[in-house]
Design a protein around this nucleic acid. Sequence first.
DNA 1: CCCGAGTA
DNA 2: TACTCGGGG
Length: 353
Amino acid sequence: MGVTNLSAVLKELSTIPIIEEKKVEDFSGKSLAFDAFNVLYQFLATIRDSRGMSLTDSEGRTTSHLIGLLTRNSQLLSKGLKPVFVFDGKSHELKRSTIERRSEIKEKAEKEYKEALKMGDMERAKSLGQRISRLDSNMIDDSKKLLDLMGIPVIQAPGEGEAQAAQIASEGTVYAVASQDYDSLLFGGPILVRNLNISGRRTLPSGHVRMIYPQEIHLDKMQKGLGFTREQLIDLGILMGTDFNPDGFRGVGAKTAFKFLKKHGDFLTIRKNEKKVSSVPFDNYEEIRDIFLHPNVKKGVTFSFGEYDVEGILHFLVEERGFNADRYKNLLRSTAESIETMNKQTSLDDFFG
DNA sequence: CCCGAGTA
DNA sequence: TACTCGGGG
């Protein structure tokens, strides 16, 4: 999850427009560091059958994440994007309670889901199904295996994936971080790209349909538009709630957090002067701030892109997971072909400067 | 999530 | 061309 509700702040409180609308093709030739868990959870939540159940192979193993990774990444590769996947390592102890709470919520949703199924309330079942996605170590392993077969580099972060992704983005090893969360910006990643693993149209809870485009957000522009330093952006996040203090503060949302920060300058001064923030016990401020300012990351990480191995992918998905070969072989071949023609083109470009 | 078939 | 629906495993 992470910091997800910053959109309102960026749209309504900034003096300059911060969110740049892009097309997927605009990222052709650029490498993007995807927060792997972020992507996988997205697939697990959305790739479901009409009863809200994950898709599985004949042995009951979930395959939703594999379908998502294969189709989405094949499209991105066809358009010349160079995805890199960064997996979470050990999560910070302050995040544990968040994780535990999420798993409680999931257990509750699971019970309600079964009831909804019994009652035949499919709409409700489907929406509950989305909340009970679990990512186990087998799913992580076969995601890595599939990515490897697709030639997509897999990076193992020592801690937060989002932090490691931000690190390689600041080092210029990748162009940007791709995620739905804003955390990479708080970790110091200079560019964030959102909506890159989401299709063009989305049905909102209200029933309205809206087009979704990739968005590019630059940290420096965001700081300029809001008039905040990076430290203040971190304070903003903490006031609104992060993975490390998920509750935030009662009655403090985007606007109030922004207002407090403008008035007092930093979190500790707000804590001294604003009742909404001071009335709650909260002694992890320095530690949380430090997670964002000095994250647990590896420096100087390098990687290389591999071959898109059509035969290998087919073997894994068809032989081992029961995918329908006819359904996917066209996608695989045309993807391999686009990659090949693009490689030829870029090597020509390199040759001629 | 993505795709294809069916429909207008 | 635009949209909805069902299926994918």
